[in-house]
Design a protein around this nucleic acid. Structure first.
Length: 1012
RNA sequence: GCCGGAGUGGCGAAAUGGUUUACGCGCACGACUCAAAAUCGUGUAGAGGCAACUCUAUGUGGGUUCAAGUCCCACCUCCGGCACCA
């Protein structure tokens, strides 16, 4: 099998030996220790001046150490940051590249319970295992800065930040129903629920009212939204993030602008604002323009208004029954849009539409969500899909108030200034054959096409009008009206045959012919158009040809709605049936209508408050104390951290109390204010707490006075590059931004946003294309790969697989390519010219700045320097690796010619390889006679002037096709090249007998000849 | 339904509007070998042709351009996210 690397010969590449050796040495030398550490002891106020170099903070999303250990997919992002940080270090940056562990939370706890282990012990074990697995890959982490969220020295500050939020009123106790996972026996945040299921265990989530701590993240909704597009003083975006993630966050925050409108409520014969405790129904709508079309009002079952109105209801028990059934439903059932809508009317009360004072019924229905907007909506079935479905089911009236507005903004049809505008009603008839599935259409002599169309007289109804038109234009007299289609549309256009602008209200009627009885058609009509039968497929193309009323969109609109009863028009348009607002554009009248009915223009967000309590053991204790006299008080700073007590039983209780509640010794404390009897808060924090600020702690991980020294924070902030999985887009990345923004607003940190550039890692799938998982037993273990192929091979392969942010299936046999590449490098190293170490002290020579630049390195090395550097910067690792491969191919070619490889050339090559394959490049670097680590060398400098090849290939295109190419000296003039080309037989053949119209010359690239 | 992203060889993929298929895998043939493995070399989009060469190909259909994988319009498919948010 090719997959196995056979026993090595003595001087062959022995990855095991080399990798272990260098990992030990690097660690002993503290090679990757962040420079700033050394300066910290010096006494100075100006921290930043201490460090000569520019800083670069590169961060991985720290892992959650599960019991299963790492698979080959996990380190992909770490490999990338390792390469990036080595590259930056070689460029002279002061690099901060730390690692730590996010170890509180449900999965670890559930696993510990399953394994009958204490979560703390198990976490320690897992962390150890993870660290070992990371270390064999040769990463350059500064482990002296390791953080662990479960360390009391760390979570002291997690608790401290929580208390800052609490003190600013951003943490509060709530008793609202929240998402409850019956399997994990804890409340969950909105972000922890996916498709109505617990994100962790997949159990269907229930709604359960309970006491909980909630963070007011919605107070920051606007800032979090605006921050996405914020720029710094230099006009650079604060967030250099993928657009897709920005969009995801925008959607998650979900801002909508709209109106809050009060509907007065009439109970029996009284109007609500005249009766005690009476309440108006406040609704939120993004479409106040449809207010005249409101035919009922709906309250969410959980709306507090329901309990106020229910006593005045004539059908109290029916409503109560409905509400209790709604409560029983799971979130999945509640929010399934496809499901038939249900509801019940509150009989005996009416709401009053503030726009027209109509009395309309009030319903309770669970398609309205209590948590969003005001928990009440005004229903406009004509212009809202959901309201329409509900109205159909309960036979509620549908009232059109928005007419699609077709304004043909082309030269010919655009209404002309200074001309009279005629207002008319027009009927359009779609007339079906008496037995076949085909339709009558008119083909006008002047090029128009369309259905039967005609103006309706003042005293005539639409139905009468269309019947009359049919007889006039076609003669058919026995027609049956089936239905009206598509409400009303407005057509606004210039009618050339009348030299007037027209503003037409168009109604469409669908009719069927009963038989072919016809009356004679007048000569005049016959002259105007012919009557054609078109079958279904022909209608739409035929309509598009032209229209008597501006463009043909209105008739297409009607045709589309012919067979769909099931629709409501949700677009914009012109107002009809809307009193003073008739004829106005719906988009333009929003605010005006809102004002006219006393409404308020507001913003609403989909983002929900962050449910911050977990009724579980394995988390940071919430550092609050409940005192009978003083209420809820913060644990004083001096008493932090509130340590998680060791317990015998940490299984969740399921009662809504955390297991901590049972530990009397821990729970019962003195009130810090009045010294009276008090109890500790027993809920713990969610998993996301510790990860919301860990990047700050890395900057100053040992500080016991503050969570981070402000001077140090100012130096390192923000994180310059943050690499991790896209699955955190709406959890961690929202939470961390929220905490950071809060800390910024309160002067604790210096930047508004924590992470400047964000880069996503694409998943590595298993060879079978599925996700790697124990469940599918398709997991590839990095330990095995490192053992068999080496860490360098694995690192190189994972970077070479494909674009970094794309998910790609693992393929071990494909990996041998990168192994072969390294073996070739190894063999090539034996052919490097021997340099007399005495005569030629390479170490000193290489320390000279820009040494390479002065030397005569071949163009392909300069190209590689340029390309590899650019590709690392852009995180295009796959092409960086291929560039290295190309460079090696060139080195081998030159070896063939000269019999040996230049020492300098190979040194430069090794430096380019060093970030990718740190062990091998270090070994070979030392073999060249160097004393200091290659990883402390400076990155080679590309001399742009050396990039130019002696010869260039010129492509000859004739009429857009490549016909010939030639190699010429790059210094040759345009004229000379053109002469050479024109003299060529092939070129002559292609242009013979033709006239050259045009010639385009791109220097060094191509000549394009165009003939007639 | 809405919002993103992507469709290029047998496969992973590459390509500032300028030779489509770099680099690697796989495959075929050859060299070395008693043989195999490893290694090295050559070839490898499709069709036609003995060949030189020609034609056709970057999901589909149009368009802009001397020139389009790349820009514009319409559509199809797949992947990811959100979704009764009024």
């Amino acid at each position: 099998m090719k997959k196995d690397i056979k026993a090595q010969k003595i001087n062959e590449y022995d990855h095991l030996k080399i990798e272990k050796k260098w990992q030990k040495k690097w660690s002993a030398l503290k090679l990757y220790k962040t420079k700033e550490e050394k300066n910290k002891n010096k006494k100075t106020d100006d921290f930043t001046s201490e460090s000569e170099a520019k800083k670069f903070y590169i961060l991985d999303m720290f892992p959650y150490p599960s019991g299963e250990g790492l698979h080959v997919g996990h380190p992909k992002g770490y490999i990338a940051t390792d390469i990036y940080s080595r590259f930056k270090r070689m460029q002279g940056y002061n690099v901060l590249h730390p690692m730590g562990f996010d170890a509180f939370g449900l999965p670890a706890e559930n696993y510990a319970i399953k394994m009958k282990m204490n979560p703390a012990d198990m976490t320690a074990k897992n962390v150890k295992r993870y660290k070992e697995q990371l270390e064999i890959l040769g990463f350059d982490y500064d482990w002296s800065r390791e953080v662990n969220t479960t360390d009391p020295k760390y979570y002291k500050w997690t608790q401290w930040i929580f208390l800052q939020l609490f003190k600013k009123g951003l943490a509060y106790e709530s008793y609202e129903p929240i998402n409850w996972c019956p399997s994990c026996k804890t409340g969950l945040a909105n972000e922890d629920v996916e498709d109505g299921k617990c994100e962790r265990c997949g159990t269907v989530v229930e709604k359960k009212p309970m006491r909980q701590w909630v963070l007011k993240i919605t107070d920051y909704a606007e800032k979090l939204l605006a921050g996405i597009d914020e720029k710094d003083a230099n006009g650079k975006p604060l967030l250099d993030w993928p657009d897709s993630i920005k969009e995801l966050q925008r959607n998650w925050i979900g801002k909508s602008e709209g109106a809050e409108i009060d509907f007065k409520v009439k109970i029996a014969d009284k109007i609500s604002d005249k009766i005690p405790n009476g309440k108006n129904i406040k609704v939120f709508t993004t479409r106040p323009d449809t207010i005249f079309g409101v035919t009922y009002v709906v309250l969410a079952p959980e709306s507090p208004l329901v309990s106020e109105f229910i006593n005045s209801a004539l059908n109290k028990s029916e409503i109560e029954k409905y509400i209790s059934e709604a409560k029983k439903k799971t979130e999945i059932d509640r929010t399934d849009a496809k499901k038939e809508k249900t509801g019940v009317e509150i009989k005996g009360i009416k709401a009053i539409n503030p726009a027209n004072n109509e009395e309309i019924p009030v319903y309770v229905a669970d398609y309205v969500l209590a948590e969003y907007g005001t928990g009440a909506v005004m229903a406009v079935p004509a212009h809202d899909e959901r309201d329409w479905q509900f109205a159909k089911k309960y036979n509620l009236p549908v009232k059109d108030v928005i007419a699609p507005y077709f304004f043909d903004n082309t030269e010919n049809s655009r209404p002309r200034e200074g001309l009279e505008t005629v207002n008319r009603r027009v009927a359009v008839g779609i007339l079906k054959h008496w037995s076949e599935d085909k339709y009558i259409m008119l083909d006008w002599k002047n090029g128009w096409t369309g259905f039967i169309t005609g103006g309706v007289e003042e005293n005539e109804s639409i139905d009468e009008g269309i019947k009359r038109e049919i007889i006039e234009e076609t003669g058919y007299k026995n027609v049956k009206i089936i239905k009206r289609i598509g409400g009303v549309t407005i057509n606004h256009f210039y009618a050339p045959h009348k030299e007037k602008n027209q503003f037409i209200e168009t109604h469409c009627v669908y009719l069927e012919l009963v038989n072919d009885d016809r009356l004679p058609v007048s000569e005049e009509e016959i002259k105007k158009h012919s009557v054609l039968w078109k079958n279904k497929e022909e209608v739409l193309p035929f309509l598009k040809k032209g229209s008597p009323m501006g463009d043909s969109r209105y008739s297409e609109f009607f045709w589309e709605h012919l067979n769909t009863d099931n629709y409501s028009y949700v677009g914009s348009g012109n107002l009809i049936n809307s009193g003073n607002f008739n004829g106005r554009n719906s988009n333009e009248v929003m605010k005006e209508i809102t004002k006219s009915i006393g409404g308020e223009w507001v913003n609403k967000y989909k983002l929900r408050e962050w449910v911050f309590s977990r009724q579980r053991y394995w988390g940071e204790p919430i550092p609050l104390i409940h005192c009978e006299k003083c209420g809820v008080t913060a644990v004083p700073d001096k008493d932090l951290p509130v340590k998680l007590p060791k317990v015998k039983f940490y299984e969740p209780t399921g009662t809504g109390e955390s297991p901590l509640a049972g530990i009397a010794k821990w729970v019962n404390v003195k009130c810090p204010e009045c010294k009276g009897k008090a109890k500790r808060e027993t809920n713990t924090m969610p998993q996301w707490a510790g990860s919301s600020w860990y990047y700050l702690r890395y900057m100053d991980p040992k500080n016991s006075k503050v969570f981070v020294d402000p001077k140090i924070e100012k130096f390192w902030s923000p994180v310059d590059l943050y690499v991790g999985g896209a699955e955190h887009a709406t959890r961690h990345l929202i939470y961390a931004r929220f905490w950071h923004r809060f800390l910024y607003d309160n002067g604790f940190v210096s930047t508004p946003e924590p992470f400047r550039k964000l880069q996503h890692v694409g998943l590595i799938m298993a060879e079978d294309g599925r996700k790697m998982s124990k469940r599918w037993s398709n997991v590839v273990n990095p330990d095995d790969i490192v053992k068999t192929y080496g860490a360098d091979t694995m690192r190189l392969y994972e970077m070479f697989m494909g674009p970094f942010d794309q998910s790609i299936a693992w393929n071990t046999s494909s990996m041998v390519g990168t192994r072969r590449f390294l073996e070739r490098v190894w063999r090539a190293s034996e052919k490097v010219e021997k340099v007399n170490s005495k005569k030629n002290n390479i170490k000193n020579e290489f320390d000279k700045k820009n040494f390479e630049k002065e030397k005569d390195l071949p163009p392909y090395i300069h190209k590689a320097i340029k390309k590899v550097g650019e590709d690392i910067s852009d995180m295009k690792y796959n092409t960086a690796v291929s560039t290295l491969m190309i460079a090696l191919n060139e080195i081998e070619k030159s070896l063939e010619k000269s019999g040996q490889i230049s020492s300098l050339e190979f040194s430069v090559f090794l430096k380019l390889l060093a970030p990718f394959a740190p062990h091998m490049s270090e070994e070979l670097w030392m073999n060249l006679g160097n004393k200091n680590s290659i990883h402390l060398e400076s990155w080679p400098v590309c001399d742009e002037s050396k990039l130019i090849e002696k010869n260039v290939k010129i492509i000859v295109q004739i009429n857009g096709k490549v016909r010939w190419s030639l190699e010429v000296d790059s210094a040759l003039s345009k004229e000379k090249i053109e002469t050479l080309i024109m003299e060529n037989e092939i070129v002559k053949k292609w242009i013979s007998g033709k006239k050259i119209i045009k010639q385009i010359f791109i220097p060094g690239k191509l000549l394009s000849i165009v003939t007639d």
